[in-house]
Design a binder for these strands. Structure first.
Length: 491
RNA sequence: GGUACCAUGGCCGAGUGGUUAGGCAGCGGUCUGCAAAACCGUCCACAGCAGUUCGACUCUGCUUGGUACCUCCA
């Protein structure tokens, strides 16, 4: 590949040089949503983070296989002993088939991801479509002696596993601490140890999503699906496993343990975890009831929102922070992102129309910017630094446009390249202002109106010229009298 | 209680042992019939205390405050 990429590995807690398992190819598995409710702002973060990662790897010349699952079964509401399946619960509540729930929210999730301009994954497997594989994996773990059956359910034997391997290696825990700190489970449990986790759960009579298995009519444990689907589509050792920080324990820890037993290796070379989006400093999430759904964000229909924010504003907002830092939501932060985004996109549009002058000297420092940006992006996806360099580019574009600087053909090419390849192709920021299908008609009309206004202005008929500008503003079109003409934007 | 992480200017957010992050807001100016945009200039900083060092916002220790995981969670 053309350059080195450095990735922070959650397992080693260090930045490491990325070396793919198979030369020239990258396999990425990301934990997708549990489709039982509207995706919220928190879901946008991994969606966008891993999207930029995929785009970058493609740009670097890798062939990328990006797998992101849909969890539509096995994800329980409370602890694994008496929890209800999230999707099953909602289905009962609404008197719908579980698959209707899953389908509805999968569609909403897809719609949100598409609006945020994220590329569709290469494969998007569903947990419910891999029940047979999951049963096989349970059997395999039983055969190897790291699981036991109890009253129709099968549990992973954490203590037995920990004797040979290290349960807690990913999340930085050890079994002794966990045992001494485990909350005592009330009621009778089928588990031998509180640390053990379910591989297969026997279904209660009222449970609606259940499948036959050698042990009982039941359903698979949550952690199983990712072990099974990542191996099926990416092989027993693949490059990057991504997901939210909150999935590190227990989900990824358990997944790693399952993999180790069944594959003889952890199966993942680099673990990558994005941080949380917070609101007033607190994690945005279901349990706190302080989340804003992506739909609400786009419509502005939420008591905490001062206004609607466009998908690209949200994307820009997320890219302005490093993915491993928490990012605090607020209206002022979003509004700042909105302005920054608009300024950048204006430059993306303007760069094409810059006048070149053959004798203009080389712009100082410009040649080094592409390299600086690539170094930042390849340094564990440092998008905020990349953006800061891009604003230097924006400034140059504006200065040339303002005739306070001249530009030669070659420098203009560099600017165009930066603003299209980096901004649009890699960061995935696209222009969302001109969405009208009848663009030609509109621009023709605008030319005419602008001409009429210009004539009025020449006659010093400012009443007419202002009236035109004000009326246009009412329908969402902004006129700006710039040095050599008139510019208009619509929202 | 255990484990980990974080504390940066009005807000959001990077980064580094000695050099301007950037965005948004503010202030002054240029431009302009006015407005908007743009451009130029500018203000505001590294939680507190102690230590290491020629030098620390950056390293170490302590203090304070906050967050995450340990239950489902992106």
């Amino acid at each position: 590949m053309t350059r080195d990429y450095y990735i922070y590995n959650s397992l080693s807690r260090k930045k490491e040089l990325f070396e793919s398992v198979n030369p020239g190819m990258v396999g990425i598995y990301v934990c997708g949503p549990t489709v039982y409710s509207d995706p919220h702002l928190g879901h946008a973060r991994p969606g966008i983070t891993y999207d930029v990662l995929v785009r970058l790897f493609k740009y670097l010349g890798y062939k990328v296989r990006y797998v992101r699952n849909i969890t539509d079964v096995g994800h329980l509401e409370n602890d694994s002993d008496d929890g209800e399946d999230k999707i099953g619960k909602k289905a009962k509540l609404l008197k719908l088939e579980p698959m209707e729930i899953a389908h509805t929210y999968t569609e909403i999730f897809h719609d949100a991801m598409r609006k945020l301009n994220t590329l569709s994954p290469s494969i998007e497997p569903q947990a419910s479509g891999h029940i047979i594989e999951q049963i096989n994996l349970v059997q395999k773990i039983l055969d190897k002696g790291y699981a036991y059956e109890s009253n129709g359910s099968v549990y992973f034997d954490v203590e037995a596993y920990d004797k040979k391997y290290h349960y807690g290696i990913l999340s930085g825990r050890n079994i002794e601490d966990m045992l001494s700190n485990t909350r005592i489970l009330d009621g009778q449990s089928d588990k031998r140890s509180a640390l053990d986790f379910a591989l297969w759960k026997k279904a209660s009579p009222e449970h609606i999503m259940k499948w036959p298995s050698p042990w009982s009519e039941g359903f698979p444990g949550w952690h199983l699906e990712c072990s099974v689907m990542s191996e099926k589509y990416l092989g027993s050792l693949f490059d990057i496993h991504g997901g939210g920080m909150d999935l590190k324990f227990p989900h990824h820890e358990c997944e790693l343990a399952q993999n180790t037993v069944s594959r003889g290796q952890s199966g993942v070379k680099y673990w990558m975890h994005n941080n949380m989006i917070t609101i007033n400093g607190k994690k945005m999430g279901k349990s706190l009831g302080n989340f804003i759904t992506i739909r609400e964000l786009f419509t502005g229909n939420h008591k905490m929102l001062d206004q609607a924010y466009t998908p690209m504003t949200v994307r820009f907002f997320i890219l302005q922070a490093h993915y491993r830092s928490t990012l605090d939501f607020s209206n002022t932060a979003l509004q700042a992102a909105e302005k920054g985004y608009k300024r950048m996109m204006q430059a993306v549009k303007d760069v094409k129309n810059l006048e070149v002058s053959a004798k203009a000297p080389e712009i100082e420092g410009l040649k080094k910017i592409p390299e600086k940006i690539m170094i930042a992006l390849c340094d564990d996806l440092n998008t905020p630094i990349a953006l800061s360099h891009l604003f230097d580019v924006v400034k140059i574009v504006n200065q040339v446009k303002d005739h306070s600087m001249e530009i030669n053909e070659n420098d203009k090419k560099i600017l165009e390249e930066l603003l299209t390849v980096i901004v649009v192709d890699i960061l995935g920021l696209i222009d969302e202002s001109d969405s009208s299908g009848s663009e030609k008609v509109v621009s023709g009309l605008m030319d005419m109106i602008i001409k009429i206004r210009k004539e009025a202005k020449l006659k010093k008929d400012f009443a007419t010229s202002d009236m035109i500008r004000n009326r246009l503003k009412e329908i969402g079109i902004q006129l700006k009298d710039i040095k050599d003409g008139v510019e208009w934007t619509s929202d």
